[in-house]
Structures are given as structure tokens and as C-alpha cells.
Amino acid sequence: METNSNSASSKPSASSLRWRILSRAVLHRAKNPEDESQLGMKLISRKAAKGFNLIPCQLLNHDHESRDAQFCYTLPTQGCPKLVLTQRLNNNADLTDFEICNRHNIDNTGTVCQWPSEDVLAYYCLSHADMFRSKRVIELGSGYGLAGLTIAATTEALEVVISDGNPQVVDYILHNINTNSGAFGETRVKPMKLHWNEKEVSNLSHTFDVIVASDCTFFKEFHKDLAQVTELLLKKPGPSEAIFFSPKRGNSLDKFLEEIKDNGLLFSITEIYDPEIWNRHQQFMNGDESWPGYEKDHCYPLLIRITR
């Protein structure tokens, strides 16, 4: 039986490409952008450089002695302030990041990039500002805090807590809150280190009117803790709800929603919740090359509303 060795060598497996992504991030090796392997990694990776690009982002400055850079987010509503966030440059990690993740039993996704579902969450909150007015709000697994900062700057919320379980990420959140403090008006804004397996949260149990989160259901090992902390934080008595944006990713979202039911909570799923977001999704499905590797199951966030 004759085999084509040239063909086999020119198409590395998906697993080998993913290992190259990890290797490049850890070793900080930037390959020639014209290299075919670089193109292959772009195609196999689900991460997008700009995602849905609902909130335009511009690099302000980058200290080349640092892993960090400042980005300016222009909120697409007249009269809204611009937000300046300090965050890591894409593909920039080192071994200390993984050591911290192992020590705190967390993942490292919060420092990797601004994930596309966070952009969708921030845009949705901006478009539904009335639901946050005079409410206590907490963002879970916030990463650099774009959605929480957007709520704080545009909705007249009473309080916004921006939380993450990674202490490195919480440092970024604190820095970004201080940088944008002039945009919050009377809204109280604070960072919080919150691990989802905490059974008691001092003075916060059952006190939040609204919980928001994006792309937090990927890892099945965290589903039970995430569902439990959602129940723990939702206000009672009185109306309260959690707004999650998450792609299906096989059966991952379904498994999380089983945990939600097991905690006595109700949920609804909406696929088409905003015409602009749906339009951009359709463009990606029809071959828009600005997001290589786009697939609905892995990339398009569904709107999950969770209530008591």
C-alpha cells in the first residue's frame, strides 16, 4: 500500500498543533508569521484576536520590559466613557502562571486574553442598562473586568463587585478599577478574590440582585462549584437573576445546567438575543476570515438566564 509521506507531514494533527500553541506561550518563541505552522495554529485555535469586535479596542502603549499593555475600549453608545484596561499581551505566559494555578486550583484562562464572550457580555449589559440600575451586581470569573467595568460606568448600578479566583487577575482588576474610577459616578466598585468552592462568603450570601459571567462553563470539573456559588450569591427573598453567556462546547453547557437544576434554580436559554451579535455570528459562519476556525458550537455564546 503506497502512502504519501509529503501529505502526511504537511498536515500535523490537531493535538500536535495545540501542543505547539502551549509551547510557544511558555517559551515565548515568536515564529515567522509566514510560517505554515503559524497558519495551522491559527486555524486550530478557538481564540480570536478580535472576537465579535462589538466594543472597539485600541492598543495605547506597551512597555517592552513588561508583559503588560494598556488598551482603550470605546463603548459604542453616545456619551459613554472610554475604558482603559491593563492586560497581558496575547500568547504571553510563563511557568509561574501555571504554578499559581496549581496552588489555587484554578485555570489560567483569565490572563490569556480578553475572551470573545466577555465582549458579548459587556455589549449586552450596555444595551440593557436599565436592568442594573440601583442593583447590587457581581461578575464571576471576570478576567480583566471589561463587563463589570462597563456596568459600573454606564448603568447607575448601586454596587459592582468584579471577582476572579486567580490572585494575579484580581491585581489587574484592582488596577483597572483605579484607572477608570472617574467613570463610575456614584456606583461603588471593588475587586474580589472569589474561589467558586467557597461555601460561605462573608456578608455576601444571598445579597446580589444580578450575577453576570461569560465563558465560565468550559471546565466540567468546576461546574458543581459554579452552580453552588451562583445559588449562594443570588439574593433572597426578592427577585434576582444570573446572566451567563456561554457556547455549548459539546455537552459542557448541558452538564452545567444539570448542576443548576440540582441546586433548585431555574434557567432559560436564548439563541438569538441581539440582532447585531447574531448578524456577526452569521458572517463568521459564512466564511468571514477575521476569525479562523470559527464554529458555532465552540464560539457562539448562548444567553443563559438563571433565577430561583
Results as ranks from 00 to 15, higher is better:
H175E: 05
S117L: 00
E186N: 15
G182H: 10
K261A: 07
Y73E: 01
V229F: 08
V201W: 01
K248A: 09
H206A: 13
S252L: 02
V210P: 05
Q282F: 10
T270K: 11
K31R: 07
F208M: 10
I55W: 11
I21R: 11
L146G: 10
C299G: 09
Y273M: 05
I151W: 04
G143D: 03
S240Q: 00
F208C: 00
D225L: 11
L194E: 07
L140W: 02
E34A: 05
S13M: 03
P81M: 15
E2Y: 14
L233C: 08
N279Q: 12
D119K: 02
S117M: 02
T155D: 06
L266D: 15
S66I: 00
I269R: 11
N286V: 02
N166W: 06
W115V: 06
N176D: 12
M285V: 07
D35R: 10
E231P: 00
A69Q: 14
L149E: 07
P81G: 07
H223I: 09
T77K: 15
Y273H: 13
D68A: 03
I21C: 06
V161D: 05
P167K: 02
N279D: 06
N176H: 07
D94W: 15
I177P: 00
K236L: 12
R305K: 15
S15I: 12
I306D: 08
K135F: 08
A30M: 02
P292D: 01
L303T: 09
H223E: 05
T74A: 08
C57D: 10
L54P: 14
K135C: 09
K235F: 04
A152S: 00
P237F: 15
F52N: 08
T230R: 09
R46D: 10
C101T: 07
F98A: 12
N108M: 04
E198G: 06
E139Y: 01
Q58V: 00
T207H: 09
R24W: 02
C125S: 11
E276N: 03
A153M: 04
L89T: 05
D171C: 03
G287A: 07
M192H: 04
S181Y: 08
C72S: 10
I173N: 02
P275R: 04
P81Y: 08
P167A: 00
D130V: 15
V161T: 05
A227H: 12
N180V: 00
V160M: 04
V112Q: 03
G110N: 08
D130S: 11
Q70W: 13
D63L: 08
S127F: 07
I277V: 15
S9I: 01
D35E: 15
A8R: 11
A69K: 11
I269C: 12
K235V: 06
I211R: 03
K255D: 09
S127N: 13
R88H: 13
E36W: 09
D297V: 08
G145R: 01
L265R: 07
L149N: 04
H104Q: 10
G185D: 04
N180P: 12
E200A: 08
Q70K: 13
K235D: 04
